[in-house]
Design a protein around this nucleic acid. Structure first.
Ligand SMILES: Nc1nc2c(ncn2[C@H]2C[C@H](O)[C@@H](COP(=O)(O)OP(=O)(O)OP(=O)(O)O)O2)c(=O)[nH]1
Ligand SMILES: [Mg+2]
Ligand SMILES: [Mg+2]
Ligand SMILES: [Zn+2]
Length: 577
DNA sequence: GCCGTTTTCGGCCCGACTGTTTTCAGTCG
């Protein structure tokens, strides 16, 4: 069982516990443990199997959850979950996804009507039976029917890139349509999370009504979920993206940004800290508990400072030790887009790219890059017309010639994205690889191996002398498939030892490696590259998403090889000789 | 169920919107 599965079972059990009206703090503990496990870089299964290790070393996992995990490993479920499932069938969990319907209502519905499915719920509303329950009326029946309709449209999470574009469009619309003082994206979008559940936008205005009216009147807003004097929630665009707009007075901008950026657990931790220091923190400001005097609020940095903390970059606000680091003055100096000097993974018309080497080079120069590596596919990707040995050698020669002539606008490194075969060997002979400046080795096939087999495969790939970088190391495709399971710590340790870089693939549907794995790998001394894997010149602009992801992994410029000048790059990589 | 410059027991963030209520519970951010 993979960590995502352990996390799902804990989190679903928390949902069932909530329907069962169990203690809210215990439920929170289950949720916290679930999210800790979901982002934990090591396989829970491996830790459980090792008598020298304990899962209680994971923050948020104590004795209770540890025994739950052990039971899960042995039989795939645990007592408390089984008991809850006797009372509430698994379909009850689906009912929770209907917006506006929470655990209390669902418990009532199940108790009174024995209805446990969305279809059954829909019938109750149509037959006007919901209103017979306490505190339920006709309006709620209508609202639930609307929620069921949008649930069936399947708006789940969205790629960061998609949401960023929607947010930019909305910010412009609001700025042009009324007098906003300040406007900023917030929530998971500001934290640079790879996928976001909605778009959160904060505005400071003197007249909130004006901006909230404007949002709900946007031509692409087709449903208003809620609207009051301070905030509005709408569904936007064909995809049904939810947009939350929060309006506040200018003197609260900093506290509001802090609140609305989250994450939720970061907020809770910060607010607890405030209480211990004799303050209370909300989106309006930081106030003294005694007397209620305001201590901070206009500026976000000021809020953190008043709590004895350095300002914490949004990407770090995930309850991963950032508050302790801010207190100790040990926050990293995070990498920025301006630190990036080159892009080391891209394709051309030689394989499945859409532009020539020259066109890619021209666009790279236009973006201010000093160098690129062209890394087309190898022959295993026959559909993409991958390069064989002869073409690899010819390509290396061509690039040497192009650079010698010096009429390219950036330095071009000869490269290859070489397939890692099922047994871990390279798809191209070592002699040919040695002709190239940079070899990115990637898995594109046989991704359903057993974890141990996949680990051995990657270990063998690391042995190949010409391999400088492992491309998109986990193989995940956001919103479609999880990465393939393997012993990441072991691979990271070996990559660190051999000086093989691990890639942060900046393609918006990959963002692989990502935050938690980056931190774990950095602890093993691994260095990284951030590359776009561009198949078209416009994809080179995706670099920013890779940088945001690197920041979520606490990376500094020195951790990332393509912050180096062209002349220092190759010597900083694994030495073949 | 977790956790600890105040604690190994006793706390655990705080506010907006909705619908139904005659003073607030439920849900969501
Ligand atoms: N203090 C506090 N703040 C919260 C709570 N729930 C949400 N927030 C804040 C922090 C969140 O980042 C912010 C936006 O809420 P969202 O539900 O949109 O979450 P977020 O954007 O973090 O993740 P998402 O990708 O949208 O699922 O509001 C809460 O229970 N307490
Ligand atoms: Mg959000
Ligand atoms: Mg939101
Ligand atoms: Zn690839």
């Amino acid at each position: 069982m993979e960590n995502a599965e352990y996390a799902r079972l804990l989190s679903e059990t928390a949902d069932l516990m909530e329907i069962g009206a169990e203690d809210g703090f215990r439920i929170r503990s289950y949720r916290n443990a679930a999210s800790a496990i979901e982002s934990y870089p090591e396989r829970i299964e491996d830790i459980l199997a090792d008598p020298a290790r304990s899962v209680t070393d994971i923050p948020g996992v104590g004795k209770g959850i540890a025994s739950v995990l052990e039971e899960l490993r042995l039989r795939g479920s645990f007592d408390r979950r089984d008991q809850l499932l006797e009372k509430y069938p698994p379909t009850a969990l689906e009912m929770l996804k209907i917006q506006g319907l929470g655990p209390k209502s669902i418990a009532l519905i199940i108790e009174h009507f024995r209805v446990t499915t969305i279809d059954g719920l829909e019938r109750l509303c149509r037959e006007q039976k919901l209103r017979t329950l306490p505190r339920m009326g006709a309006r709620i029946e209508e609202k639930v029917l609307r929620s069921i309709a949008s649930y069936r449209q399947r708006a789940g999470r969205f790629l960061l890139s998609f949401a960023s574009e929607a947010a930019a469009e909305l910010k412009q619309y609001l700025s042009e349509g009324c007098r906003v003082e300040r406007i900023s994206e917030a929530g998971s979008l500001r934290r640079g999370k790879e996928t976001v559940g909605d778009v959160d936008i904060l505005v400071t205005v003197s007249d909130p009504g004006e901006v909230l009216d404007l949002v709900t009147r946007h031509s692409r807003v087709h449903e208003v979920l809620a609207k009051g004097g301070n905030k509005a929630s709408v569904r936007f665009g064909l995809e049904g993206l939810q947009v939350d707009v929060r309006a506040l007075p200018a003197e609260s901008f900093g506290a509001a940004m802090q609140y609305f950026t989250g994450s939720k657990t970061h907020n809770v931790a910060l607010r607890q800290r405030a209480l211990k220091m004799g303050y209370t923190l909300n989106e309006y400001g930081l106030f003294r508990l005694e007397g209620g005097g305001r201590v901070a609020g206009e500026d976000e940095e000021e809020v953190y400072r008043a709590l004895g903390l350095a300002w914490i970059p949004p990407e770090l606000r995930e309850s991963g030790g950032e508050i302790e680091a801010a207190e100790a003055g040990r926050l990293p100096r995070l990498i920025e887009l301006a630190d990036i000097r080159g892009d080391l993974h891209m394709h051309t018309v030689e394989t499945d790219g859409r532009a020539s080497l020259e066109e890619m080079a021209a666009q790279a120069a236009a973006q201010g890059l000093e160098y690129i590596a062209i890394t087309d596919h190898s022959k295993a990707l026959a559909m993409a017309n991958g390069l064989d040995e002869a073409r690899v050698v010819a390509f290396a020669r061509k690039v040497r010639e192009l650079n010698r002539r010096g009429d390219l606008p950036v330095r071009v490194f000869s490269g290859l994205e070489c397939d890692i075969r099922r047994d871990g060997s390279m798809d191209i002979e070592e002699d040919a690889l040695a002709e190239l400046d940079i070899v990115v080795a990637s898995v594109h096939s046989h991704m359903n191996l057993e974890p141990a087999e996949m680990t051995d495969r990657l270990l063998r790939a690391l042995e190949s002398k010409s391999v400088k970088i492992i491309g998109h190391p986990t193989g995940r495709i956001l919103l479609h498939r999880d990465g393939f399971p393997f012993d990441f710590e072991r691979i990271a340790a070996e990559a660190g030892r051999r000086g093989v870089a691990l890639e942060i693939n900046a393609s918006p549907e990959r963002l692989d490696l990502h935050g938690p794995l980056l931190r774990a790998a950095k602890a093993h001394g691994v260095r990284f590259t951030i590359s776009t894997d561009a198949h078209h010149p416009r994809h080179l602009a995706n670099m920013i998403y890779g940088v945001r992801t690197a920041r979520r992994g606490w990376l500094e410029p020195g951790d990332v090889l393509n912050t180096l000048p062209a002349g220092q790059l190759l010597s900083a990589m694994r030495q073949t000789g």
